[in-house]
Design a protein around this nucleic acid. Structure first.
Length: 584
RNA sequence: CGGGGAGUGGCUCAGCCUGGUAGAGCACUUGGUUCGGGACCAAGGGGUCGCAGGUUCAAAUCCUGUCUCCCCGACCA
């Protein structure tokens, strides 16, 4: 491609409202332009990157026998109502009505649609397993789009679905997919970690997320360097707080006045002086229409995902102050679970107590009367109606739940892929069944596997860039190398560049020929910004000696290479860098 | 949804407090000189100051409302 014909609107200055590296650089280097919050136009360079990522994905999907579909983005409400997710998805779903007033939505994911096809078409166990996928635009009305293309409202996803007869079949499909994901991320130049994850609104029994470590990410990963244990903090466990709980003196519970005390910190200060480790934090949640209580230690944070798992709730949110007041008779700040009855007929459905609290006594908690707290609380005695569960958020420095030695590290990461063992949740909801070998009708066992295409590209930029611009992995760079005639007006230079451009093309190398009549400095700057993995510069001085300059994007020094050898050198370097497709 | 910030030429921003006919740098056009790390000189083109009301002789500037964007949080396969 000739740069004079390619639309690459580079920016000298950093756009004011971009903060993360990938956002800044993709805008500056002429890959992206915003249309609205979380909605971007992909300019020619970005489109090429996306195509390359998709190609790698297609190759790896083909390698595990997956078949590509293309499904509608516009869905009728009925199918989402069948699975129950018309409600579950809430405000995150873009909804609209057609001219006849029928409810429609834009697809956020495609379990329902693929499952409907399976239901309508799959009849026999002989047709299984099937692995179906598509690469489609997804729509999610994110509450807060941010960080350029990292969190958006319209994006491209590869989503695959497996249909198996039984659990062992699903296990195999899941493992195939997991390995394909590893190859995809490796080929795209991403270092990543596969972690245990929370399944959230997807449901299902197990899920693994693929995370790229970067401060631009929005998830926290709990990781043990000793044994490799890794989990999303939503799921992450630990052997408990590093500071021991400070139980007070055992004895009967006793109320004491605490006027004005609203927080754990208030109660820790004089005149009360109850350290957070000795306090019980009581939180009330609304879970599928009922209220539940979660109790964690005063210095711990409740992990909502864990509460969701423990309670089995589909929809979970903090209860409103009015709801809390009506149920417990006090406002947040003076809440406690002691003496609260739980059950189907009660105002509180269930009480969950973090398992690290088991056996503690002499604790302090709210008295369910504004301005009063209780001391001398014995968890086993006074919270016996509660269910012990892992509820607390694991923290850095705590001991690894899996190995004896390790201490946990917590870091920011970006989710680039997520694979789920769905089981029969969707096949049962939508009635997707087949006859097994005994002629019995059984629900299909499903898995679902997603990859964010733009996120792969953006993650690559987050991981590979410097002060001058992007440093694309060769496999997904929009072109293989920049070809820079430094003096476009010099006939010898221009001709040599043209000849080399043709030779490179004939060798299967994608060169971006900067044939613009620009000064060398401009070409160097733009080339660094755009970030192709290699650069060939043709200057008149070295050309007179029959040489051109070769440089990898990250190298400090260029190397002079005889013109006759440059094509084979380029081919070799690109091959080594993984620029060429396996099947290509 | 809560908190904070910002909307002035394509981009980055000044002007607003203290109202008086809209500016700079970059980018763009033309001519000239340049030509190995975002050149220089000269001459140009381009802006309903987000939008709608209001106050005033007069509003980018003051007031009210509203929209949009960004950041933090809540939320989120």
């Amino acid at each position: 491609m000739r740069q004079s014909k390619l639309f690459v609107p580079t920016l000298k200055e950093t756009p004011a409202d971009a903060t993360v590296a990938s956002h800044v650089l993709l805008l500056r280097a002429g890959y992206l332009r915003p249309l609205a919050a979380g909605i971007y136009s992909y300019l020619p360079l970005f489109q090429r990157v996306i195509r390359k990522v998709e190609r790698i994905i297609r190759e790896e999907m083909a390698a595990i026998g997956a078949q590509e579909f293309f499904l509608p983005a516009l869905h009728p409400a009925e199918i989402w109502k069948e699975s129950g997710r018309w409600e579950v998805m809430g405000d995150n779903m873009f909804r609209l009505k057609d001219r006849g007033g029928r409810d429609m939505c834009l697809g956020m994911t495609h379990e329902e649609i693929f499952t409907a096809i399976a239901r309508d078409e799959l009849r026999s166990y002989r047709q299984l397993p099937q692995v179906w996928y598509q690469i489609q635009t997804k729509f999610r009305d994110e509450a807060r789009p941010k960080s350029g293309v990292l969190r958006v409202r319209q994006f491209t996803m590869k989503d695959a679905y497996s249909f198996d007869l039984d659990q062992p079949g699903l296990d195999k499909s899941f493992e195939d997919e997991r390995r394909a994901y590893c190859r995809i991320f490796e080929r795209c130049g991403l270092s990543y970690v596969a972690v245990d994850a929370h399944s959230g609104a997807m449901g299902g029994s197990a899920s693994t997320e693929f995370m790229v470590r970067t401060d631009a990410g929005e998830d926290d990963v709990v990781h043990c360097a000793s044994c490799g244990y890794a989990a999303n903090v939503e799921r992450g466990e630990s052997r408990g707080p590093s500071s021991a709980a400070k139980g007070g003196v055992a004895g009967p519970t006793k109320a004491f006045p605490t006027p004005g005390v609203k927080t754990i910190e208030d109660l820790a200060r004089p005149p009360h002086g109850k350290p957070p480790e000795q306090q019980l934090k009581t939180l009330v949640y609304w879970a599928d229409g009922a209220l539940v209580i979660a109790v964690v230690r005063g210095d711990d944070e409740l992990n909502e995902a864990k509460l969701q798992t423990a309670s089995g709730a589909q929809v979970l949110r903090p209860a409103h102050p009015e709801e809390i007041q009506a149920a417990l008779g006090a406002r947040p700040g003076s809440l406690g679970a002691v003496g609260v009855r739980a059950g189907e007929q009660e105002k509180i459905r269930r009480i969950f107590v973090d398992r690290t609290l088991a056996g503690l006594s002499g604790m302090v908690t709210g008295a369910n009367e504004d301005g009063f707290h209780l001391e001398g609380v014995d968890v086993a005695r006074d919270l016996a109606q509660g269910t012990l569960a892992d509820l607390r958020k694991a923290r850095a420095g705590e001991r690894c739940p899996r190995c004896e030695a390790g201490a946990l590290d917590v870091y920011k990461a970006l989710e680039v892929g997520h694979i789920f063992k769905l089981g029969t949740k969707y096949s049962e909801a939508l009635g997707a069944q087949v006859l097994d070998a005994q002629g019995k009708e059984i629900p299909i066992v499903m898995g679902s596997y997603g990859i964010g295409v733009e996120r792969i590209a953006a993650a690559a930029v987050e991981l590979h860039h410097d002060a001058d611009g992007i440093r694309w992995p060769a496999s997904i760079a929009p072109f293989h190398l920049s070809l820079l005639p430094l003096q476009q007006q010099d006939a010898a230079v221009a001709q040599a560049a043209e000849k080399l451009y043709e030779d490179l093309g004939a060798a299967g190398i994608e060169a971006l020929l900067d044939d613009r009549d620009e000064r060398p400095g401009v070409k160097f700057k733009d080339a660094d910004l755009v970030g192709l993995p290699f650069r060939i510069a043709i200057g008149k001085k070295s050309l007179a000696e029959g040489k051109v300059e070769w440089k990898a994007r990250g190298d400090a020094q260029a190397e002079l290479v005889p013109l006759a050898e440059i094509v084979s050198k380029a081919k070799q370097a690109l091959g080594k860098a993984g620029a060429f497709s396996i099947v290509g």
